[in-house]
């Protein structure tokens, strides 16, 4: 079957989709967007988390045919999504400036000029990335939580991220990263 939907603001069309394919498979294998990860394919790890019409979901549990006409944001589009949100909230200038500042502060740049969302930069800066396989899902979930709850308590962070498994970090640096992103977001406003 054919599926048409929007990914990271761009219309996409996938052809010859087998009816049992998941959104995750279509993103990874048909649209060249392998950022969303395939760690468990049973909704138990959160590494495939994307936003479907704004709502964080496990893309492995969404049938491809169910996304017809809908909007998906993946980790690949997270920086743009965060930027647009900042613009929409009428703080465009400041936020952009801040975004650049964050980049300048970091001293690890491989993709020179890559603009990152606050939560992405915080994950790098806080050492929240090791193998990185859980990272995309965590970033999408953490970014959405900070959108809803800009000043989370530690318990709030843990609850919001309880659907995202990480096997490397013991979660401490992930906590640090989300606290850091929240603090920077707070400063920026």
């Amino acid at each position: 079957m054919r599926v048409n939907f929007t990914v990271n603001g761009r219309p996409q069309e996938a052809d010859d989709v087998w009816e049992g394919e998941s959104l995750l498979y279509v993103l990874r294998e048909r649209l060249g967007l392998p950022g969303s990860k395939n760690a468990c394919e049973q909704g138990e790890c959160g590494s495939c988390t994307v936003r479907l019409d704004g709502v964080p979901v496990c893309s492995c549990l969404v049938a491809a045919g169910q996304v017809e006409g809908r909007e998906v944001v993946t980790v690949e589009g997270l920086a743009d999504y965060a930027k647009q949100r900042a613009c929409a909230s009428d703080a465009c200038g400041t936020s952009l400036q801040n975004a650049q500042q964050w980049q300048a502060k970091g001293d690890s740049h491989t993709g020179e000029g890559t603009e990152l969302s606050p939560v992405q930069q915080a994950f790098i800066d806080a050492g929240a990335v090791q193998c990185g396989f859980c990272t995309p899902g965590l970033l999408v979930a953490a970014d959405e939580m900070l959108e809803r709850n800009p000043t989370p308590t530690d318990a709030d962070i843990r609850e919001a991220l309880s659907g995202n498994l990480c096997r490397c970090t013991g979660y401490e640096k992930i906590m640090d990263a989300v606290r850091l992103a929240a603090a920077r977001q707070g400063e920026a406003v």
Binding site: L33, P34, G35, S36, T74, V75, E76, L78, A79, S108, H109, T110, G111, T114, L116, Q120, Q121, F123, I124, V129, G132, T135, P136, L139
Partner: peptide, 9 residues
């Protein structure tokens, strides 16, 4: 590899 890992690349 941090930037590549947080952007999904």
């Amino acid at each position: 590899d941090g930037t590549l890992k947080v952007t999904g690349e």
